[in-house]
């Protein structure tokens, strides 16, 4: 127990097992607790795998079949075909890489920029805070979508990184503000003041004391930013304002609506629905998984 009088003072240091390797173990327990979380995880893993391995499953140029244009759903074409007779399933699978990679990059830019600027501006109140917040306000007032439309006239979005960068650079304002306000309240807490009197560096305080306390919030934002970015880029391609360079769910939507007339003809409906369903299932996966994130990063919810 915890009282001086009853503790034998030993000169040897007893071995205390480390529990840092058990994060994955804890994560598994948290996720396995509710079936919804498992479904979410499976969906996310499924799409991630699709993005990584998808393009290798099919030839570089997908086979076309002039005899099966807008073919209905069948064993050979589980999701039907497009205007050239290419399998919609192949289009979805090979298109996943661009969509997911661009979205992941966008979310990464959003979270890294938003978190760092939010932390710095919340912790160092003063002129740096004012400067960062003015920039944040400026970013927040830029309408991201129209900016992308304008940028796409001068910039080639053939590389997903470029797309992700532009989406990220316009999207971090909200997160920065939220992280700043959380940092502002945390910096008044006793343990931050204690860290200062113990002579710990500001870098340590920002990234080892404050960051773990908002980790669950940031992880949630990362996931939400991914879905948000997917919608934004798919939207751009759907509008057709970005030159088509690769297979992409947004391109499919665009062609389905504007070329195949899926809004009026039944035969092109599988062509329209397959990217929509892919988006829907992915979003569902993210939402289901979000439930686990809070518990995963919040030590209070971890069991003793």
């Amino acid at each position: 127990m915890s009282v001086a009088e009853s503790t034998p003072v030993s000169s040897k240091i007893p071995h205390v097992p480390k529990n840092r390797a058990t994060f994955l173990h804890t994560a598994w327990r948290v996720i396995a607790k509710k079936p919804g979380r498992m479904v979410g995880l499976v969906i996310i893993l499924f799409f991630t795998l699709m993005a990584i391995a998808g393009p290798y499953l099919y030839p570089r140029n997908l086979p076309i079949n002039p005899n099966a244009i807008y073919a209905p759903i069948s064993w050979k074409y589980p999701l039907g075909t497009d205007f050239e007779g290419t399998s919609n399933l192949a289009l979805i699978v090979t298109g996943a890489r661009y969509v997911l990679f661009a979205a992941f990059m966008a979310a990464l830019f959003t979270v890294v920029i938003g978190t760092v600027l939010g932390l710095v501006s919340g912790y160092y109140v003063g002129w740096s805070d004012s400067v960062i917040m003015r920039i944040t306000d400026f970013i927040l007032t830029i309408p991201g979508f129209p900016l992308l439309v304008v940028l796409s006239t001068v910039w080639n979005f053939g590389q997903p990184v470029a797309m992700g960068f532009v989406l990220g650079i316009t999207g971090w304002g909200g997160l920065a503000r939220a992280v700043r306000s959380q940092t502002l309240s945390l910096r008044e807490r006793g343990f931050i003041e204690a860290a200062r009197t113990l002579g710990l560096s500001p870098f340590h305080i920002l990234f080892k004391e404050i960051l773990p306390n908002i980790a669950s919030y940031i992880a949630m934002n990362l996931l939400l930013a991914i879905t948000g970015s997917i919608y934004a880029e798919v939207g751009l391609f759907f509008l057709g304002v970005v030159p088509f360079q690769a297979n992409n769910w947004g391109v499919m939507l665009n062609l389905a609506v504007f070329s195949a007339g899926a809004m009026s003809s039944v035969q092109a409906l599988p062509y329209l629905l397959s990217p929509l369903i892919a988006l829907l299932v992915l979003t569902l996966g993210v939402v289901l998984f979000l439930d686990a994130v809070d518990e995963l990063f919040n030590p209070r919810l971890k069991e003793a």
């Binding site: 807490r189 006793g190 343990f191 003041e193 204690a194 009197t197 004391e209 773990p212 209070r300």
Partner: peptide
Amino acid sequence: RQVQLIQQDPYQALNPAR
């Protein structure tokens, strides 16, 4: 660093995430 502060609230003085 030679001066250390023991605060009133032990619930706030330790980082809950560490």
